[in-house]
Write a protein that binds this DNA or RNA. Structure first.
Length: 537
RNA sequence: GCGGGCGUAGCUCAGUGGUAGAGCGUCACGUUGCCAACGUGAAUGUCGUGGGUUCGAAUCUCAUCGCCCGCUCCA
C-alpha cells in the first residue's frame, strides 16, 4: 500500500470538500450566505472535536493531581480587560495609503524635520519604532547635498520627530513609502463588544472574552481557597473565545469564534523555568502521541525580541499546514504579570504564602527572642512573612492551545489517498482519514455481509453491545460490503466488524483494520474487547 | 482593508442572451458472500443575494455577501 500523501495546496480543498460531504464542518449560517470567520461542526465533526477535548481533559486534568478544572463565563466585568491590557493598549490605530495601498500602524510612522532657524533642512516621513531610529533613518535616507548642509550647520540644529499617533485629530501626514495621501486612522480593536442589560450606553459595554486565560486568573484565589491546592498547581479550562479578526483565513484556522484549551500553571518564581520546559515538552509530545508526525510538527522557541513584554519565555507548537507552518499551541512563561495586574486593578491580594516553610521559621520570632517585647517580635515576624521566600506572587506557565486548530491539524494529517484493490483486484484510489483511534468519531462499524440468513440480527446485537459498553458504534447493512468499508475509511473509523456465513457455524466475525486492511477472525464474545484494547491510546 | 480569481444539485464541475445539465454521491428494489463507480427506478436547484439592462438573464451590468490566492494584520 503506497501512500500518496498530498502536501500540495489542493489538500485543503479536498479536505474541506470531504468535511462538508461527510458532515464534519459546515460554514456557519450557510443558507443565508454564510458569515466570515464562523464555522459549524456537523455530526461527525462534533464527535471528533469532543474526542480531542476529552483526551486533553483526561491527560491534563484527570491524570494530574495538581491540576483542577474550571469553566468561566464568557462575558466578564469589563475591568478584567482593562487590567489585562486588552482594552486600550492593544487597539492599534492603522492608516492605509491611498496611493500605494500600504498599511501602517500610526505609532510606527514618524515625521522628522531638521531646522536651522527658519530654514527647513530636512523634512521626511519615515517608518520607525522610536525617535532615534527615525532620526537615523531620516539621515540615511537624505541625499548627499542635504547631508552636507546638515553637517555644515554644526550644532545649532533643531530636530523634531512626531509620530502620526501623536498628531492632533484630523491631521494626517504623507505616506513614508510613496509620499501619497493617508486615510484617517482607524481603530483595530479585536474584541467583540456587547451591552449587558437593556440599556445600551457606555456604562453597560462588555466584551466577549478574547482568551480564556483571564477567567482563570480572576478565579485563582477562589480555586486556591476552595480546592486546598498548593504550589505548584494548575487550573485548566476549555471554552470559546472571540476575536474580531480583520481577515479570517485558511478554513477554520483563523476564526472569529474559536475554542481554546488552556492551562495556567502557578509555580514558585524560582521553578518557573523548570515548569516552562516541562510543559513545553509535554504539550509538544502530546501532539506527536496523537498522530502528528514529528517532521511536520515543530517546537519553535521564540527569539527574545519576539516575546511579549510580559513573557520571559515562549515556544510555539507549529504544524505544517497546506497553507504553511502555523501555530497550534503556545507555551509561555507569563511571569507574575497577570496576577500582579489583577492585584493592582482589583485591590485584591493575589500573593501566595508558604505556610509550611514559615512554620519552621516562626519559632525565631517568639517574644523571648526579642527581650520579651511581644510587639517587636510580632512586627519582625510580619516583616519577615511579607516577603520572599514566604510571601510572593506566583509565576504562571501558560500552555494555550486552539481546539479548532488542533482539529484541523489532525484532519490534515489524517487525510490520505492510497490504493486498495477492488473486487477484480484492480487498484483503486481510496480516501481514508487515518485519525488516531482515540479521536475517531466512530470507533466500530458493524455490518452483516448480506441482508439475509439472520446475519443482520447478529450484527445488530454486536452493535448494541458495543454501544452499551460506551463505544461509538455504527450499523450499516446497505449495499456492497466493500462500499461500506470505504465509507467508513473516509470518516476514519478504525475497525469494521462483519458478520458472515461462518459466523453461523462458529460464532466468529471478521474485524477489518482501517489502515492495513487486514482481517482478523474474532469470537463474537470477544469482539468489543478486541476493539476496545486497540483504541485506548 | 487593498489587488486578483471564483460562486450552477450533497460533492466536483460543464453550460457566454432563448426549455437547468453531467459524473459521483443519496434513496428504493433487485443482485452481490469481504474491499466503492452491477441492473432497474427515484428524489434533489431562490444558478450566492439584491437591483439594473433586455421581449427574454445562470450568461451582460452595478452593488452586496461568502470562499480561495497574494499583500496587510495577528495583543
Amino acid at each position: 500500500m503506497t501512500d500518496k500523501k498530498n502536501d500540495s495546496g489542493d489538500l485543503m480543498e479536498k479536505l474541506a470538500s470531504l468535511c462538508k460531504r461527510r458532515g464534519f464542518i459546515f460554514q456557519s449560517s450557510e443558507i443565508y450566505g454564510g458569515i466570515g470567520g464562523f464555522w459549524d461542526y456537523g455530526p461527525l465533526g462534533v464527535e471528533l472535536k469532543r474526542n480531542i477535548k476529552a483526551a486533553w481533559w483526561e491527560d491534563v486534568v484527570r491524570a494530574n493531581d495538581n491540576i483542577v478544572g474550571l469553566d468561566c463565563s464568557i462575558i466578564m466585568n469589563p475591568k478584567v480587560w482593562v487590567a489585562s491590557g486588552h482594552v486600550g493598549g492593544f487597539s492599534d490605530p492603522m492608516v492605509d495609503c491611498k496611493g500605494c495601498k500600504a498599511r501602517f500602524r500610526t505609532d510606527k510612522i514618524a515625521y522628522v524635520s531638521l531646522t536651522k532657524g527658519d530654514n527647513v533642512l530636512l523634512d521626511a516621513a519615515i517608518e520607525a519604532d522610536d525617535e532615534s531610529e527615525a532620526l537615523a533613518a531620516a539621515m540615511a535616507g537624505a541625499n548627499s547635498k542635504t547631508r552636507r548642509r546638515i553637517e555644515g550647520a554644526g550644532g545649532d540644529l533643531t530636530s523634531t520627530v512626531t509620530f502620526l499617533s501623536k498628531m492632533p485629530d484630523g491631521e494626517t501626514g504623507k505616506c513614508p513609502n510613496c509620499g501619497g495621501e493617508l486615510t484617517e486612522p482607524r481603530e483595530f480593536n479585536l474584541m467583540f463588544q456587547t451591552y449587558v442589560g437593556a440599556l445600551q450606553d457606555s456604562s453597560s459595554v462588555a466584551y466577549l472574552r478574547p482568551e480564556t486565560a483571564q477567567g482563570i486568573f480572576v478565579n485563582y484565589k477562589n480555586v486556591m481557597d476552595t480546592s486546598r491546592m498548593k504550589l505548584p498547581f494548575g487550573i485548566a479550562q476549555i471554552g470559546k473565545s472571540f476575536r474580531n479578526e480583520i481577515n479570517p483565513r485558511n478554513y477554520t484556522f483563523r476564526s472569529r469564534e474559536f475554542e481554546q484549551m488552556e492551562i495556567e500553571f502557578f509555580c514558585h518564581p524560582d521553578e518557573a523555568e523548570k515548569w516552562y520546559i516541562h510543559w513545553r515538552d509535554t504539550r509538544y509530545q502530546w501532539y506527536i502521541d496523537h498522530g502528528l508526525l514529528s517532521d511536520k510538527l515543530h517546537l519553535r522557541d521564540h527569539d527574545p525580541d519576539e516575546l511579549a513584554h510580559y513573557a520571559r519565555g515562549c515556544a510555539d507548537v507549529e504544524y505544517d499546514f497546506p497553507f504553511g507552518q502555523a501555530e497550534l499551541e503556545g507555551i509561555a512563561n507569563r511571569t507574575d504579570f497577570d496576577l500582579k495586574a489583577h492585584q493592582e486593578h482589583s485591590g485584591r491580594d493575589m500573593t501566595y504564602f508558604e505556610d509550611e516553610l514559615w512554620k519552621d521559621e516562626a519559632p525565631k520570632y517568639t517574644a523571648d527572642k526579642f527581650d520579651g517585647d511581644k510587639k517587636a517580635a510580632r512586627k519582625a515576624a510580619e516583616e519577615a512573612k511579607s516577603v520572599m521566600p514566604y510571601r510572593f506572587t506566583p509565576f504562571v506557565i501558560e500552555p494555550s492551545g486552539g481546539v479548532d486548530r488542533a482539529t484541523l491539524a489532525f484532519l490534515c494529517e489524517a487525510y490520505t489517498e492510497d490504493e486498495a484493490p477492488d473486487e477484480n483486484g484492480h487498484m483503486q484510489t481510496r480516501v481514508v482519514l487515518k485519525l488516531h483511534p482515540r479521536f475517531a468519531p466512530i470507533k466500530i462499524a458493524v455490518f452483516p455481509l448480506v441482508k439475509k440468513d439472520g446475519l443482520p440480527e447478529i450484527a445488530h446485537n454486536i452493535h448494541a453491545e458495543a454501544q452499551a459498553s460506551g463505544l461509538a458504534s455504527f450499523y450499516d447493512e446497505k449495499g456492497a460490503v466493500g462500499r461500506r468499508y470505504r465509507r467508513q475509511d473516509e470518516v476514519g473509523t478504525p475497525f469494521c466488524v462483519t458478520v458472515d456465513g461462518q459466523t453461523l457455524e462458529d460464532q466468529s466475525v471478521t474485524v477489518r483494520d482501517r489502515d492495513s486492511l487486514a482481517q482478523d477472525r474474532v469470537a463474537i464474545d470477544e469482539v468489543v474487547n478486541y476493539v476496545r484494547d486497540r483504541i485506548i491510546r
